[in-house]
Simulated scan of single mutants.
Amino acid sequence: MSEKIYCQGGGCSAKLGAKKLSRILEKIDKYEDPDLLVGFDSHDDASVLKITEDKGIVSTLDFFPPMVEDPYLYGQIAATNALSDVYAMGGVPRTALNIVCFPDEEDLNILGRIIEGGNDKLKEAHVTLSGGHSIRDTSIKYGLSVTGIVDVDSIKTNNNAQTGDVLILTKKLGVGMTLNAMRMKDAAPEVLDDVFKSMTTLNKYAAELLKPYDVHALTDVTGFGLMVHLNEMLDHKKSVLLYGNNIPYFRDCPYYVDEFYLSGAAQTNRNSVEKEVVFEKENFFLEEIMYDPQTSGGLLASVAKKDLDDILDAFKEAGRECYVIGEVVDLKDKSIYVGE
């Protein structure tokens, strides 16, 4: 984005911490609409409002500062990330509105490239850009408000995991620390290419592959990292055993941890849930990977064990990533147990 350094902590790592948000939201005395099927009480990915007996509207919005210097790539990542919440609810996005904050003194060609990048991902998703809103600001921010449709009996909430389910993840972890290494000019180009490809891959494809199967809980892994999103999925009703050796991450992440290319957002994530987490063996690298904030991360699904082989076959045939990372068990003293 010209010679200036714009990406000083953008993407989903710019989120406020989960604890702070919870303290604020739990005090709000909101209007209760009987047709609101999913709201913020469950910490879910988007809201769902029933409009007919069998259809609901999915609503979400997401925006953040740049995490890369290329404005077109930034627009692609922001749009891919915003669309993800609709897919994570089992819905299909239909329309989107741009959200733009832009300094008066900046070159409008930069803004044009950002919006073009976002719109190209909308076209790939068959989503119509129908408008938006912009304001002058001291820094650049971009994202989308997205509206989708979902069948009421197909809504995928994030907190209905069942004992015996298997956990699968559809993208690698380590986005946050890789972007930090990039800012320090210490990330290999081929690793960055892999990370950028991941961040611009629509979760539409993984959601479609999961649709025929018994998915009991579904969310996407973004700024709160794997651990916080997983803890919200368990909702103090179940526990999970994670297979530490199966946790997928981008190449060079061990090096990034050794170099302490870590973020404040990762520490915030750790502070939010570490009392609910038990590591069977001390593993600093694995901890950092699991708390690392992801931008436009993959889907995390709790699926019926009987469907696992078919799901893995479907993803393999489609050439899509799918990693088995754990299993859901009855509630124990802690929510998350990390083994080998």
Rank of each mutant, 00 (worst) to 15 (best):
C12S: 10
C12W: 02
K19V: 10
K19S: 08
K20N: 11
E26M: 06
I28A: 06
P34Y: 08
D35I: 09
L36G: 05
D44S: 14
D45Y: 08
L49H: 15
L49I: 11
I57D: 04
V58R: 07
S59V: 13
F64D: 03
V68P: 01
E69N: 00
E69G: 14
Y72P: 00
Y74S: 03
I77R: 02
I77D: 06
A78I: 07
L83N: 10
L83R: 01
S84G: 14
S84E: 07
D85E: 15
D85M: 14
A88Q: 04
M89H: 10
G90F: 08
V92P: 04
V92C: 11
L97I: 07
N98W: 07
P103V: 06
D104V: 12
D107F: 15
G118N: 03
G118T: 05
G118A: 05
D120G: 07
K121F: 04
T128A: 15
I140C: 03
G148V: 04
D151E: 15
D151M: 09
D151V: 03
S154G: 09
T157A: 12
K171A: 02
L173M: 03
V175D: 00
V175E: 00
N180F: 01
A181N: 03
K185G: 05
A187Q: 01
P189R: 00
E190D: 10
D193I: 01
V195E: 00
K197G: 01
M199G: 00
T200W: 01
T200I: 01
T200H: 00
T201E: 12
P212L: 04
Y213V: 09
V215A: 11
A217M: 05
L218P: 09
D220V: 06
L230K: 10
N231L: 07
M233F: 12
M233A: 10
S239G: 06
V240Y: 09
Y243W: 15
G244L: 02
P254S: 10
F260Y: 13
G264T: 09
G264K: 09
G264I: 06
A265D: 01
A265G: 13
E280V: 08
E280L: 13
E280R: 13
K281W: 02
E282M: 05
F284I: 13
M290E: 04
Y291H: 08
D292A: 05
D292R: 04
T295F: 06
S296C: 07
S296T: 01
L299W: 06
L300T: 01
V303Q: 11
A304M: 10
D307Y: 13
L308E: 11
L312A: 02
L312D: 05
A314Y: 14
F315W: 04
V324N: 05
V324A: 00
I325V: 10
E327K: 11
D333G: 09
Y337G: 01
Y337W: 11
